[in-house]
């Protein structure tokens, strides 16, 4: 009897150990580092949460490293992380070019590098998930053309463009895309000024000054929703009513959506944060196991997205959406802070 009991217990222990090891393997495929450029910005903070949760759903543990918007710090963090030999690195670069040597070093060490949100075209990476900053500028330009036409009868008028920090390529690329599309309309005068360090009160000051110097401004285009808040405060202080001066912003943060609901903002060009993060999780297994990623159309959280094979590697582009009063409550927008209910499934 004793022998039977011992044998049963031993068999049970072995079975449990086997099950535990199998479960652990299925649940934890290893660690991935997410190099986030800053946490002083709603989009970036929400991206940490989204990437951590979506990657967890496909079996990876994510640890985020905040670079505080400092290129040198992010480079040093990359060096440290490479030494830890993670399964992969997800990089949202502070500076698009300065991180190239770090990407090359990681890949040389056999660590795949996935690029998030801030596209790097000057070196090879293993996967890129972006909405496209230049494309955000295009979408904004299309929307602004429509708003000016509705107000003035044709695409003409005066637009104040408030950029983010002029040292940040992110804002410069939005400007590039926007101005490229607006070139076709010489009757639109664009005044462009940067809000240093993406600081809201700097944007407020610019709006205050320009409203005095150019009282005929038709529309203000700010490159981030938190700058729109300060712009609205300045409009209000100058006695303007909601809608009197049109306002367009980008990134789709919750505060931007609130401003649309209150009637101050006309359009918010969304960076599809949830879909961008979900795409990383969908393709993580393929990237980490060095499997081929096939070009073509993919459904990412209901958004038709396209994978192309570019000179810098596989690239998925997820379309940015224009949010206005008609669709502002749609839960697919990350600014409504309702993550998708269905878990992410890896691409077979």
């Amino acid at each position: 009897m004793k022998r039977f009991l011992r044998a049963t217990l031993a068999a049970g222990a072995i079975a449990m150990a086997a099950f535990a090891s199998h479960t652990a393997e299925a649940q934890d495929k290893g660690k991935v580092f997410y190099m986030v450029p800053t946490l002083l910005d709603e989009f970036q903070t929400a991206s940490v949460e989204a990437i951590t949760n979506f990657m967890k759903e496909v079996g990876y543990t994510v640890e985020a490293k905040n670079a505080d918007n400092k290129t040198d710090l992010q480079q040093s963090q990359m060096n440290d992380v490479i030494a830890l030999k993670p399964k992969a690195i997800i990089l949202a670069a502070v500076d698009f070019n300065a991180l190239v040597p770090s990407i090359e070093k990681a890949r040389a060490a056999g660590i795949p590098v996935m690029i998030f949100d801030r596209q790097i075209k000057t070196t090879k990476s293993d996967f890129t998930s972006v909405a496209g900053t230049v494309e955000i500028g295009y979408v904004a330009a299309d929307q602004i053309q429509g708003l000016l036409k509705t107000k003035n009868g044709s695409v003409k008028g005066k637009v104040l463009q408030v950029l983010g920090d002029p040292a940040d390529p992110y804002t410069l690329e939005i400007q590039q895309g926007f101005e490229e599309k607006m070139k076709a309309f010489p009757d639109v005068k664009i005044i462009s000024l940067p809000a240093m360090q993406w600081e809201a009160s700097n944007a407020g000051t610019i709006v205050s000054d320009q409203l005095v110097a150019n009282p005929d401004i038709d529309l203000i285009f700010v490159h981030a929703a938190h700058l729109a808040v300060a712009a609205v405060a300045s409009l209000e202080a100058k006695g303007k009513k909601p809608g009197e001066v049109m306002l367009v912003s980008s990134n789709g943060a919750p505060v931007g959506l609130d401003l649309i609901r209150k009637g101050w903002e006309n359009v918010e060009v969304e960076q599809p944060l949830f879909a961008q993060a979900a795409a990383l999780a969908m393709f993580a297994d393929k990237v980490i196991n060095k499997q081929e990623i096939k070009p073509g159309k993919y459904d990412v959280l209901g958004l038709e997205s396209e994978v192309t094979i570019e000179s810098w590697g596989a690239n998925i582009k997820i379309p940015g959406a224009a949010i206005n009063k008609g669709n502002v409550d749609d839960t697919k927008f990350w600014g409504n802070l309702k993550p998708p209910a269905t878990p992410i499934k890896p691409v077979e």
């Binding site: 800053t38 946490l39 002083l40 910005d41 709603e42 903070t45 240093m196 360090q197 993406w198 600081e199 809201a200 009160s201 700097n202 407020g204 938190h226 808040v229 300060a230 609205v232 405060a233 209000e236 505060v255």
Partner: peptide
Amino acid sequence: LLAIRTSGATANLGVG
């Protein structure tokens, strides 16, 4: 005063 001026607050408000 800064919060009142910008009618809100962001995590990087006042930087610089």
